[in-house]
Design a binder for these strands. Structure first.
Lengths: 114, 114
DNA sequence: TGATTTTGACCTATATATAACCCATAACAC
DNA sequence: GTGTTATGGGTTATATATAGGTCAAAATCA
């Protein structure tokens, strides 16, 4: 079953996406690309691009990132290139392999006997 | 009407989201937070968090960013704080106000009369 | 100015994502 | 080792996002 979904977001989340949306729109206009053009290239509908540029929080992250890539907005400042981002992925994979696989909370050792 | 959606993504998009997913999982485990805990805090289901950590491209960007925020992964290197990100938003708003509102392609001046 | 194009805001039918289960197994703590 | 919890991988009913369309208004350009 599914409950009706009503999300809340932190201020930081909202504004981060707001910034990303603004950057995307700026970049598109600077490059004189029509909304329809970008939508076509990204494989999405124009109405979807509208939502992305309006910072709609419920857009698919893949669609948003794809549009960002198309208009030239880099997602990670540290890694604007594919090779850079791959290095970062490798680093994170190494790190993950060293970390425990699961997180365990302390047993609920019923310590209430005093 | 709606056509069946089959998306394609650039390599860069895929790997950027892969990196983000890895960073999220690392951060969660480092902080000894259970998947269920993070999901609850983010207001999403555990299965959704699983998809986020597996770099599923079709997750809502709001949910992904919210989880990132919760476990402490900064979205923009340049702006880890709310005040910083707001400055960036202001800058982008100024920029947008200076840009043309729409993009126009050259008229298809039917120049085929020669 | 007028011609042309882009955009924003709707709407609808349908494909799809989602929450909430379940279960088996893995991982950890002791 | 045992006991406990976390996780991965499914399934299902339903809420919701999506593509695709329309229309009017705004913006650009000659």
């Amino acid at each position: 079953m599914r409950k009706s979904v009503k999300r809340t977001y932190s201020r930081y989340t909202e504004e981060a996406i707001r910034l990303l949306a603004n950057l995307i729109r700026s970049a598109r206009i600077e490059q004189k690309l029509t909304a329809q053009e970008v939508a076509d290239r990204a494989g999405i509908s124009r109405s979807m691009l509208q939502r992305i540029e309006k910072a709609d929080l419920r857009c698919e992250i893949g669609a948003v990132f794809e549009v960002a890539t198309i208009v030239g907005v880099s997602l990670f400042d540290t890694s604007q290139s594919l090779t850079m981002i791959r290095k970062e992925i490798n680093r994170s994979n190494e790190k993950l392999s060293l970390l425990p696989k699961t997180v365990h909370k302390a047993h609920k050792v019923v310590d209430d006997d005093f």
